[in-house]
Design a binder for these strands. Structure first.
Lengths: 250, 250
DNA sequence: TACGCCCCTCGTACAGTGTTCGGCGAGCGC
DNA sequence: GCGCTCGCCGAACACTGTACGAGGGGCGTA
């Protein structure tokens, strides 16, 4: 006797309708998990809640997914799938291609801010989408004239910058969403605390007061782009001083 | 009647000895939490286990710490306290100072690899140690000739690079520790999977085979230093250009 | 058409989690 | 000596991830 449906007799019992939907599968589980995370954040992801949203029992996912950790790996790779991979002829303007890829990674993370801590937990993975992204970048850079080792470094450094920079943006977004307030309200509310906390730190205080109005999204994207250009500058100089073939930069 | 100590009579009951230790305090709680995390990893941190290690009840910490999340914030700032802050006369050789600071941040994170995901959850905080670090960097850079906005960018970019780069190293370390195997064993064991997964990704495959022996710590620190020099190169060029391009992003 | 098998589903159960509450008992100020 | 405050802790609550085993629908084969 379950508590959520009282069975009066055999005749009123709903004959479990199978196959009206493709039922459960790895894909729909992961997709629904992403939706749940987008709507309610990382803390709200539990197997029971996810099962309920799928009209499934709490433990029904375990025949498609070994554990919650594995589910998270799949979710992360699913999000990797939203990032823009450099196309086959992107090497003609590798600067633009790398920049577009970096911006795509950033905006994907900001669209799913809960993923930032997960990236730190999962680390580098063998997921197909994550591999496709790295492979695309490596291929493009090698075609643009970098050798294997250089391209490896470039990808590492570029992604380290993008992920590091975006993670702090995402943490800010997450905190704002959790507080349920607008950015202005929140800033106004914690301002006294900031003022008191920065008493002994004049440079920090000046920095905070300089951006008192809060960080608008234009300022944030400018910050990001500024550092990105910088990193890409370094990239170009390495290319120029390295092998000198195919170094036209559009 | 509790289950972990049978009270025979009033006389044998241990008179709770107070004040032999400074009892519980925020500091000893946080310090013990760091020790627990170092020894057993992030998944092992629970209020009950922490209480047991402190010879305290499960909920005794709640008069010193509001919640587990707050405890984590304190733990993170405690670890920030281990990072090397540029000294007052570091501006004379800001390159060396920034490099030393970056290396210190990296090695601190690698000493406590569990902290990498936490950095993504906590985000920028008002903790005293975190502020001391940022303040020290800002002060040094301004004294070295950067203006406020430039120094802000530099700190952001540098830390984004260091944290992003180190996070993936830390994830690797964490995974290795969780598997309980040596790096060679692990590499040998997953090698067939890698070989099969990289079937369609020739560049990735070449990268993996190139570093087949596994990544030694020398290679890793070289990778890190390579990118760090690169970032600092960009930093220097910005400084040399001075105010000519200074107001570009304003 | 009937049987048998397989695999998906899910109720139940277990060990553990963070956190609240209320009581208790010790220390300190008066 | 008295009372009050404050730190400590046992019990309890609402959850969590996951193992297990029973049930039953779908499909291949007879």
């Amino acid at each position: 006797m379950s508590e959520n449906q009282v069975i009066q007799s055999v005749w009123t019992r709903p004959r479990r309708q199978k196959r009206e939907q493709p039922a459960l599968s790895r894909e729909v589980i992961v997709a629904e998990a992403v939706r749940l995370l987008d709507e309610e954040g990382a803390a709200a992801l539990s197997m029971r809640r996810l099962g309920t949203r799928l009209n499934a029992g709490a433990t029904s996912m375990y025949s498609h997914v070994a554990s919650k950790d594995e589910l998270i790996e799949l979710v992360v790779d699913h999000v990797y799938g939203e990032m823009e991979v450099p196309g086959p002829d992107a090497a003609k303007d590798w600067w633009a291609a790398a920049s577009a890829c970096a911006h795509s990674v950033r905006s994907t993370i900001l669209r799913h801010p809960w993923i930032a801590p997960m990236l730190g937990e999962v680390g580098v993975s063998l997921g197909p989408n994550s591999m496709r992204l790295t492979e695309g970048m490596l291929a493009m850079l090698e075609e643009a004239g970098f050798d294997l080792e250089q391209a490896d470094h470039v990808v590492r450094i570029l992604f380290a910058y993008v992920i590091g920079m975006t993670t702090s943006e995402a943490a800010w977004l997450t905190m704002l969403a959790r507080s349920g307030q607008s950015q202005e309200d929140w800033t106004r509310k914690v301002w006294p605390a900031v003022e008191q906390a920065t008493r002994d730190y004049p440079h920090l205080r000046r920095r905070y007061t300089a951006q008192e109005g809060g960080r608008s999204s234009e300022v944030l994207v400018d910050n990001f782009g500024y550092g990105l250009d910088w990193v890409l500058d370094g990239l170009r100089s390495r290319l120029d001083q390295g092998s000198r073939k195919g170094a036209e930069t559009g």
